[in-house]
Amino acid sequence: MIVFIRHLSFILCVWMGYAGELAAENYSEHTETTSITLTEQNIVLNYDQAVRFSQVLGDTYSYTNNKIYPLGISLISPHKKNLVDQKKALVLDALKELNTVEANNLIAQLSDLNFVYREKIETDIEKVRLISRSNPMLRGQYQLFLSTRPDYIRIFSGDYEKSFTKPLKANYDLKDYVSDLPIFSDIHTQKTGNKKPKYHSAWVIQPNQDVYLANDIQWARTLYFLSPGAFIFIELADLPNKHSNLNTDIAHLLTYYMEP
């Protein structure tokens, strides 16, 4: 009987994995209740069992009169917050070790940002309903943030003392936004003779957490278009081997950024 139970448990675990369920780690395996806190509406949706993400989205839409921006919807797992905090701490420690003007500017930009564990999941309700692998079972505690469509993109760069936003412009691509960046901060103005920065590569972080590095953006024929609310991160140059992955780590950390 013990052997049978062990085999049955293994089969159930495999089945749950293929079903794409997002099980909350702070709940026991027998817990089926699910609660979803709508952060903007301050409403809690309670379910007495595991629930499909499509049902949660459908129920959620009925609690807002605003036009929801699907790419900006965030399914947040509060019990995984420590994972994001660890990523942030490692990034800040590496920047402190570099101790350059650019690194210190990024420390100032990243230190006070609100980072949460956003599940990487499809959030377009029609796609969720139609594609089974995009419609996981949820159990445990989650938060759901419903975004309206932003009219800006945000820039992060060690060449500036603060991150800042730029208005979203029709038909603009990454090269256009980068070419329109303002002059350096006062420290850099003294070093460069008031010249504008010239960037050849940048990270793009889309609001749905897609992230990629665009190279040779001044000359390449590839056009990189940004969705409303996207981030541009101008990577640090000439990193030592010890911190060769720091730009990648910063770009992926920004996928967890949540507007306060």
Rank of each mutant, 00 (worst) to 15 (best):
Y257H: 11
F156R: 03
Q218W: 14
M258L: 05
A24P: 15
P197H: 02
I183C: 10
V14R: 02
I250W: 00
H243R: 12
H243I: 15
E40K: 07
N114T: 13
E126R: 07
L253N: 04
E126P: 03
N247I: 10
E235T: 07
V84H: 04
T123P: 09
Q109A: 06
V51G: 03
T248Q: 15
D249K: 15
Y142S: 02
M16P: 00
L181M: 08
S244C: 14
A202R: 04
Q109W: 03
Q86L: 11
D249M: 14
I5W: 07
L106C: 09
E102Y: 03
S163W: 15
Y256T: 06
L144C: 01
E21C: 11
W219P: 13
H252N: 08
L113M: 09
T192F: 10
S132G: 15
G17P: 01
I107L: 05
I232R: 02
K166A: 07
L168Y: 04
I125R: 06
R139D: 07
L223N: 10
F231T: 02
N194T: 13
S157N: 11
K127V: 15
I250M: 08
T31G: 12
A94I: 03
F184Y: 01
H30S: 11
H7Y: 00
L22V: 12
H252W: 13
N82D: 14
L223H: 12
Q190D: 12
L236P: 05
V51C: 03
F145I: 08
Y117S: 14
G158N: 04
M1H: 05
Y63E: 05
S132R: 10
V211T: 13
E126H: 06
Y257I: 13
P182L: 15
A89Q: 11
L138S: 02
A94L: 04
S147N: 05
K81M: 15
D210R: 12
Q109R: 08
N46M: 08
L236C: 10
E102H: 06
K87R: 08
F231G: 03
Q209F: 03
S77H: 14
C13S: 00
R6T: 00
Q86D: 13
K88N: 13
D186Y: 13
R6C: 02
E40T: 07
A24V: 13
D159N: 09
L90H: 09
P240H: 11
V128N: 02
L38K: 03
G140A: 07
L22H: 12
V84P: 00
Y152L: 10
N241Q: 13
N241T: 15
D124L: 10
V204M: 10
K127P: 07
Q209I: 08
G58V: 01
T64A: 00
K162F: 10
A103D: 01
S227C: 11
R139S: 11
K67P: 02
D48T: 08
I234H: 02
M1I: 06
I125C: 04
A220N: 12
I5T: 03
W203L: 02
N135V: 12
V44F: 07
S28G: 12
N46A: 12
S163R: 14
Q49R: 08
S157M: 10
N194D: 14
